[in-house]
């Protein structure tokens, strides 16, 4: 690995560890709450397994840079620093949710964090990313848009039109594909003529970034930092991170129960390529006596998630006024 890990200080690495563990615990709790029927929305796409991609990539951004993603958006919101309480409240459809209980799991956003949202129409947000990036060029500012998407988002027209336009207009976008090898239930080989998705950059005449290990937060951070620097000064970049989803397409995904091959694949990723374990091993090897600090973080994060659940449960539901508000700007 080319990364100069010594340049990353302990505080940064522990912060990433904290974020990754927070996402994992938050998602595990969402899974439980769904099965307890406390989160009742039909769509709940958990970020478990992907954590290092979101944490490493978002860490490469400045405060004024922009982030958008698809429907698997909880982890990106947390990585961007959105408080767990209004996120959990949104899961439960509460008035105190980040989107007022009107967006749900797939439509988290926080304008204050330049987190422009999760979007549930596959690849729809790619077009918004081009527009947000265009505004930066238009105003002569130098902020960058990080647009995350799943591998499943690479085969409809939004992908083609958005990446092409970003190249034609030379827009400051880092296109980051989180390739977990399966779009809903269809394997990448069965959906993409060119399953090495990063190669598509060639077709648009944009910079082809690396195809990276999405389970290693340090590698993700380094690759996206380079991509962000390139986008800021030059133009769009396409990067592909290889990762794996631990909780299926969504919480209602039953195919892992029925298919041994998928179950084995999942077990293998969890056993050998888990982003928490990879970072933990790195920290244990690099810093003597850090174990107690990691355990402390685990405990603190647990309390953050439990506090978020209590907050969400105690929050009021939206009202009739909320139902009819914000249809239009008044």
């Amino acid at each position: 690995m080319a990364t100069n890990t010594r340049s990353l200080d302990k505080v940064t690495l522990l912060d990433w560890y904290r974020q990754i563990v927070l996402i994992r615990q938050f998602e595990n709790r969402c899974d439980e709450l769904y099965h307890q029927k406390k989160i009742t929305g039909v769509y709940l796409h958990l970020y478990s397994g992907h954590e290092a991609v979101g944490v490493g990539a978002v860490a490469a951004l400045g405060e004024d840079d922009h982030v958008l993603t698809g429907y698997r958006d909880h982890g990106i919101a947390l990585a961007r620093g959105v408080d767990a309480k209004p996120l959990m409240a949104e899961m439960m459809g509460k008035r105190t949710g980040v989107s007022g209980g009107k967006g749900g799991s797939m439509h988290l956003a926080s304008r204050a964090h330049n987190f422009w949202g999760g979007y549930a129409i596959v690849a729809g947000h790619l077009s918004l990313a081009t527009g947000i990036a265009f505004k930066e060029r238009y105003m002569g500012t130098e902020n960058v848009v990080l647009c995350l998407m799943g591998d499943g988002a690479t085969n409809n027209g939004y992908f083609h039109e958005s990446l092409n336009l970003s190249a034609v207009w030379n827009l400051p976008v880092v296109w980051l594909i989180e390739n977990n090898f399966i779009g809903m239930g269809t394997r990448i080989e069965d959906s993409s003529g060119q399953p090495e998705l990063v190669k598509r950059a060639v077709a648009y005449g944009m910079k082809q970034g690396p195809r990276i290990d999405g389970q290693n937060v340090i590698e993700v951070h380094e690759a996206i930092s380079e991509a962000v620097a390139y986008a800021r000064k030059k133009g769009p970049v396409l990067v592909e991170a290889l990762t794996y989803r631990y909780k299926g397409h969504g919480v209602s995904d039953k195919q892992y129960d029925a298919r041994d091959d998928l179950k084995r694949e999942l077990d293998d990723w969890q056993a050998h390529k888990d982003p928490i374990n990879i970072l933990k091993d790195h920290l244990l090897a690099g810093f003597d006596g850090i174990e107690a600090e990691l355990a402390k973080i685990d405990t603190e994060v647990h309390e953050i998630v439990e506090e978020a659940v209590r907050y969400a449960e105690a929050s009021p539901v939206p009202t009739y006024e909320d139902l009819i508000r914000h249809i239009y700007v008044e």
């Binding site: 077009s127 527009g131 947000i132 990036a133 505004k135 939004y158 039109e161 958005s162 336009l165």
Partner: peptide, 16 residues
């Protein structure tokens, strides 16, 4: 590219 003409315009509008 009618899809991204509309979509990029939405994004640009959201951005101000």
């Amino acid at each position: 590219s009618e899809l991204v003409i509309a979509g990029a315009a939405v994004g640009a509008a959201m951005a101000g």
